[in-house]
Nucleic acid binder design. Structure first.
Lengths: 341, 341
DNA sequence: ATTAGCACTCCATCGAGTCGAGTGCTAACA
DNA sequence: TGTTAGCACTCGACTCGATGGAGTGCTAAT
């Protein structure tokens, strides 16, 4: 037995219907719903076949059918009609405050959540390890030294240091030159003992300041290593009865608040740059086995990527979600490309 | 009729018991629970009185009693034994990563949440309007100009600007001097047209850069105006059955995610610097009418304050919460005092 | 191959019955 | 007069069975 045209149509109808209502759908419904002009009895036979094939399941005997993970998968892979969406008002709202990467991404998460009514997550760029691009020391007032460290990707880090007594303006100037000469273009693994020795040698008598500075730099670099995740609309999941069961919801919300495993989620198959859909058990995160997750990758700079994820019930509106992500991805790509020019 | 010693003792016993169990407490329980050696019948009479006085209520006829808001209020005001707590392991964990205000406060929220099992919120400092302390422009590479703006309270803001063609190193140096001379010590309201005119006059030919810079500064200042709120442990509220009712929980979690009205919550009676307890309807936030909120103020600099809040069920462990906040507040005050020296 | 018809299954809902915790009241007692 | 024992009563929680309906699977007719 195999999937002929008609079975496919029926399956599609079942899924469409279930996506809308969230209730198991019966043969009579399909009989009316489609333009196949078949009686409910015929549909029943076909449904029985579809169940045997594993595309749909009955929650219990003599209930209607709901799509299985396999069914959703087929739907997403072949039957979904992707439609381009206007995300324009979204877009206007975005451009508004979008100057800092942080705010931008938080905004993206929020707008996406509001537009889709699901929970959303966005990660910033992931660099293997950022290289130092530029360092600058300045004395802000009599007691404090401000170190500004610019990393690859124009990530700017600030660190206030207590100003060592007896450090003159010329010393600071000198330090600036030395630091930039020796550290620019290096990442943390490359700042080794020999580099440090050279640094100290070149900055006679200021060794102790150097040590503190290197700490600050190391910290700035490593801070960027755990990629930030921005979430929004977590409470949206409470809108779906199948997810608002106490345990399920509690675990899910906790996960979204903690953000600990979310990066794993987003980085699965990260070599794939298209839009990906994970249904039920396909996700790596235990607490999301009753959910579906849709992810997209956007490009920040050449070879450096961030990701967007949407978490919702299995019966999420895949078409809308995929469409929205598609447009959003394109627009984000554009922003960053433009930003670079 | 009035509250005599015995009634008070019984009320206290009722509240204590209810805090632990969350179940309405009956006369027999109290009869055994206290050392009063009274029969349940006597207790019943007293409970009847206490109800008449408004300190306890029955969820329904012939159920046990639970404390009313008024009852909790009396308890918190007079009957609670405040106990100092050790928050020491908390403390160690804190010192660890605590260099940036942002991370510090987020950590505080998290640790508090883990320790108390309630939802927590922490606000950063609120300045009326921050003054500019220091400005620095640097050319990071051929195409980009980095503006570093340090505000009162050592809040550092960065802004990348496209480098206008033909801007020489000397120009930048000059701009730095001019900007610092004219803008240091001013807040946004003080940077008016006459200041701007003077700026432009002093920086012959670089007027267009100035305009952009002023935008950046204005943005940096105003960004700080909506005070950041850090939350943690939102999902903790799902642990309490009386709050995990679908609607209540949903509203609450939404509020905690949105953070919109939380500042209102924390700023009520902000002139009071002690620890404050809001029970049920006493809070200003509608969705928290089934909760209690405990807030504390800590001092960042002279006259500049931040706040900590804990949101939990009305039957929260007030003693523990108040105790924890007390110690934490002291320790935060210490940090910031030390930091200043 | 399709369909009408029918028996069957199982969940959801409702109401009746029971249980038990807890109250309020009364009468007796110290 | 304050305390207590006793008892009738209330009301939610829980259980159980009956009912209804949506939906199925099977069979026989078309």
């Amino acid at each position: 037995m195999e999937l002929d045209e008609r079975k496919l149509k029926i399956l599609q109808a079942i899924i469409k219907n279930y996506l809308e209502t969230g209730e198991p759908v019966g043969s009579r419904t399909i009989s009316k719903f489609t333009d196949l002009n078949l009686s409910s009895a015929t549909i029943r036979n076909e449904m029985s076949d579809l169940e045997e094939l594993g595309y749909i399941v009955q929650p219990y005997t003599s209930a209607g059918r709901i799509p299985s993970d396999k069914g959703y998968r087929l739907y997403v892979d072949t039957m979904m009609q992707s439609r381009m969406l206007e995300v324009e008002q979204m877009w206007d709202a975005l451009n508004d405050k979008a100057d800092k990467m942080e705010t931008l991404l938080q905004q993206v998460a929020k707008l996406l959540a509001v537009n889709t009514n699901y929970a959303t997550l966005v990660t910033g760029p992931q660099y293997r390890s950022r290289k130092v691009k530029f360092i600058q020391l300045t004395d802000v007032d009599e007691t404090q030294l401000l170190a500004v460290i610019v990393l690859e990707g124009n990530i700017v880090k600030n660190k206030m240091l207590p100003l060592a007594a007896g450090l003159e303006k010329e010393d600071i100037l000198k330090l600036n030159i030395v630091l930039n000469t020796y550290l620019t273009g290096l990442d943390m693994s490359e700042i080794n003992l020999s580099v440090i020795a050279k640094l100290k040698e070149q900055s006679d008598g200021l060794g102790n300041v150097i040590t503190e500075l290197l700490d600050a730099i190391a910290q700035a670099i490593s801070e960027e290593e755990d990629i930030p995740v921005y979430t929004s609309g977590a409470t949206n999941i409470l809108k779906y009865p199948e997810l608002s069961d106490h345990h399920v919801a509690s675990d899910l919300l906790y996960e979204l608040e903690e953000k600990k495993y979310l990066t794993d989620l987003l980085n699965e198959n990260s070599e794939e740059h298209g839009i990906q859909v994970y249904i039920g058990q396909e996700t790596s995160v235990e607490s999301m086995k009753d959910c579906s997750v849709v992810t997209a990758t956007y490009e920040i700079e050449d070879g450096i990527y961030g990701r967007i994820g949407i978490v919702g019930p299995k019966r999420m509106d895949y078409e809308k979600v995929v469409g929205t992500l598609q447009t959003l991805k394109t627009q984000l790509d554009d922003i960053f490309k433009k930003n670079k020019e």
